[in-house]
Design a binder for these strands. Structure first.
Lengths: 208, 208
DNA sequence: AATGCAATTAAACAAATGTTTAAAACAAAA
DNA sequence: TTTTGTTTTAAACATTTGTTTAATTGCATT
């Protein structure tokens, strides 16, 4: 078992082909709706190779999920842990970073949140990430905001609002699309618009 | 086939038992992860009865989905079509009505949005609902807001923000829960708090 | 009580789906 | 070239899962 070195190569190894395919299929359809044969087809490889390289559908899924969560947390970690920036700067940073990431991977929010539903126990990794957030400089700044009486509500609301405003368009996109409320061409434009607006809105909410 | 009369009865008919069970299982796990046997078990009836009464898993699912969409649209239709209320009154109405509904059915948003993903073609019914929204008095008021230059961005943003702020806590709940960022006991309290706050926030965003 | 129709059941069936096997193809080393 | 170990393949396998069947039960009407 050599797991041939993962240099950025012209043609990817079979293992990589499978990972790439799994990433696409799992994130777009979810675990239950994904068939191992879908992954094999997407990767253009023989069905048996999936189990040969990854043992089981579930093990492969766990890899993709872990990778995804890491991608999401790594993206804001530097922002929320930076104790040299103001709260407003952090908010802009979070919004910018996430909208950028989500424009490239629009399926991520729905994927994570759907799979979280049926108690797919990655609790250990998850609570770790939770602690990571709660101990951040950003979390402290939010608490201080409340301690100083500058906001009259639970600081978790700020976090909910940032996430809601950033993430909802991507979660609701299929719905807004199919109802005809939002047109394909407009989507990217609207998101770019929101990149500047959301930080303004959040600040305005804080200073209400 | 008698479909015995649906009076609000002491013990529900088998058909109702199946519908109730299907509603619970489908909305909590999604179509792909739901097994017909799960529904039978939840309803405490024989497996074959599901097909006896509803022909197929898919037909049963379509009923639940249609019912759910109707529930969601019926809830705001009277609000957004009322041409005797101000925009602010409508915003409060939408927020109040939805948060109330979602407190009773927290799984609805994630359910609808997940199933919308893999192009589960209920396009006809959907585009109907879309038109229903676009022709509403509420939509007109939003457009007017832009026409008068009172907002400098696409009015769809207002709709996205309302939905995002209202719906996201329910979509993100599993995530916020498992990370330990949000505690079970706090959830309802926070939502109640948001019932007053969100309308204020939206107005403040409009008047920015 | 007897008849007929609807409701229910246990079992079987067929298709789908995750996993394994055994042989073939391939590549590197001797 | 032969040998050895790895990768790939087609096929089979076992389980899950949606659906159907055929028999039984229950109930209302005669």
């Amino acid at each position: 078992m050599d797991k041939t070195a993962n240099t950025t190569n012209a043609d990817p190894s079979t293992e990589e082909k499978i990972m790439d395919a799994a990433r696409i299929v799992f994130t777009s359809k979810g675990y239950a709706a994904t068939k191992v044969r879908d992954i094999a087809a997407q990767a253009n490889i023989n069905l048996a190779l999936v189990n040969y390289y990854f043992r089981s559908k579930e093990k492969l899924f766990d890899l993709i999920m872990a990778e995804t969560m890491k991608k999401l947390f790594d993206k804001i970690k530097p922002v929320i842990y930076n104790d040299a920036t103001t709260l407003n700067e952090k908010i802009s940073g979070i919004v910018d970073n996430y909208l950028e990431l989500l424009l490239e991977n629009p399926e991520l929010p729905l994927f994570v949140v759907s799979e979280m539903r049926s108690g797919s126990d990655m609790l250990p990794k998850m609570t770790g990430n939770g602690k990571l957030f709660l101990e951040s400089h950003f979390a402290k700044q939010l608490q201080q905001l409340q301690a100083e009486g500058k906001i009259k509500f639970h600081p978790i609301n700020i976090m909910m609002n940032i996430l809601g405003l950033v993430v909802f368009p991507f979660i609701g996109r299929p719905l807004l699309m199919k109802t005809g409320i939002l047109k394909e061409e407009d989507f990217k434009k609207i998101i770019e618009e929101r990149k500047k607006l959301i930080p303004l809105w959040i600040v305005s909410i804080i200073n209400l």
